[in-house]
Amino acid sequence: MPVSRRLALPALVAVSALGLAACGDGGADAAAGQAGDSGDAAITIVTSTNVYGGIAAAVGGDDVEVTSIVDSLSQDPHSYEPTVQDKLSVSEADLVIENGGGYDAFLGRLADETGVGTVLNAVEVSGLDEHAGEEPAGDEHADEEHAGEEHAHGSFNEHVWYDLAAMATLADAVADELARLDGPNADAYRQRADAFIEDLQPVQERLAALASENAAKDVEIAVTEPVPAYLLEAAGLEDVTPEGFIEAIEEESDVPVAALEEMKTLVSGGGLAFLAYNGQTEGAQTEAVRSVAEEADLPVVEFTETLPDGEDYVSWMAGNTDSIEAALGS
């Protein structure tokens, strides 16, 4: 592999000491700062969010040192403004991991500005967007923030970390890239990636069972933002959120009055299984929709864009699946 390029491989992720207290599943026991106990220099990894940080820690173990830029539920990855320290961290990284698809364009800009050697893109490795690898005309990474808008607000959902199969593929690619960077520990990276993938399988099996149960029922749900769409689809659920509502939320603009009223009518009408709610980027209009749902006794299932404190990726997705099952059974 050439050293200076973006790779269509899974994004390796950084874990900050605050963002992940532990990463138990998949063999990841090390938090940031514990890498390199053997005395050898650890591979340094910077990622956009602690979701990818958790996966990086699971695969890299004590042989890597990871830093997640967005590592708190109080931060909105869409609008994050990087700091001088973030730029310094990226400049010193052996590997940078971005989500891509216009989601975390700040990290791509930092990578370009600092000339970091290798950048992994999770959207590209997922294979979920056939156009993800296409660069805009002109400068290789010019206007990257706007280049992703076609995906973010069109038919493609850039929140690929909610697709468990994609994250299994990501773990494979992370192991391959770490093996390239650190050949002596290649077997350890492969073993930890295999363990992570094995830990994901029971969650995938539960989702498949839900999909089978829901196949003949036409179970409908609505979302305040399509962040968990891949997970909901895997459970066999149909998203019937009004298009005008979702478009406005994704564009971070006010929802038109008619679309907001349509959404409120939908959640109060008694035909939905639950409302999927992203509290990490909530606003007055999504809060209003939630209030209507609660008044109608419609279950509200919380989803986030970053790992909650104390969770690793596998336990987080297992917990999300628990919440879906509970809402469907209520």
Score class of each variant (00 low, 15 high):
Leu12Tyr: 09
Glu158Phe: 05
Glu213Gly: 06
Val289Ser: 03
Glu198Ile: 03
Ala229Tyr: 00
Ile249Cys: 01
Ala215Arg: 14
Gly310His: 12
Ala28Pro: 03
Leu231Ala: 12
Ser4Gly: 05
Asp254Trp: 06
Ala258Phe: 07
Leu210Lys: 03
Asn214Phe: 04
Ala58Pro: 03
Thr224Trp: 00
Leu298Val: 10
Met263Asn: 06
Ile43Lys: 02
Ala57Asn: 11
Ile221Cys: 06
Ala166Asn: 06
Gln285Ala: 13
Ile324Val: 14
Ala32Phe: 04
Ala222Phe: 07
Ala318Lys: 12
Gly283His: 10
Val70Trp: 02
His141Ser: 06
Leu237Tyr: 05
Ala293His: 04
Ser291Ile: 04
Ala21Leu: 13
Asn278His: 08
Gln204Asn: 07
Glu238Cys: 04
Thr304Trp: 01
Gly148Ser: 07
Ile249Asn: 01
Ala193Val: 07
Asn121Val: 15
Gly271Met: 07
Val219Ile: 12
Ala209Glu: 15
Tyr313Thr: 00
Ser315Lys: 14
Glu251Asn: 14
Val116Trp: 10
Thr224Lys: 01
Ala165Ser: 11
Pro77Glu: 10
Thr265Trp: 05
Gln85Asn: 13
Ser89Ile: 01
Tyr189Lys: 09
Leu107Arg: 00
Ser91Arg: 10
Gly310Asn: 10
Ser16Gln: 06
Ala273Leu: 10
Glu81His: 13
Arg190Val: 13
Val257Ser: 12
Ala318Thr: 14
Ser315Phe: 04
Ala293Ile: 03
Ile97Ala: 14
Glu130Phe: 06
Asn99Glu: 12
Ala35Arg: 03
Ala93Trp: 00
Phe245Tyr: 15
Val90Ile: 11
Val292His: 06
Ala14Ser: 14
Gly329Trp: 01
Ser72Ile: 01
Ala122Cys: 10
Gln280Asp: 11
Thr241Glu: 12
Thr286Ser: 15
Ala147Asn: 08
Lys217His: 08
Glu251Thr: 10
Glu261Ala: 13
Ala168Phe: 04
Leu207Glu: 02
Ala171Gly: 05
Leu232Arg: 02
Asp62Pro: 13
Gly270Lys: 07
Lys87Tyr: 04
Ala288His: 04
Asp139Val: 11
Leu12Met: 15
Ile69Phe: 03
Leu20Phe: 05
Ser155Val: 12
Asp139His: 13
Tyr313Leu: 03
Gln280Ala: 13
Val15Gly: 15
Ala11Glu: 13
Ser79Val: 11
Gly117His: 09
Ala152Ser: 07
Ala173Ile: 01
Val174His: 11
Ile45Trp: 06
Gly33Trp: 00
Asp309Gly: 09
Asp194Cys: 02
Asp163Glu: 11
Asp129Leu: 07
Leu237Gly: 03
Val289Phe: 13
Glu177Trp: 01
Leu9Met: 14
Ala235Gln: 01
Ala11Tyr: 11
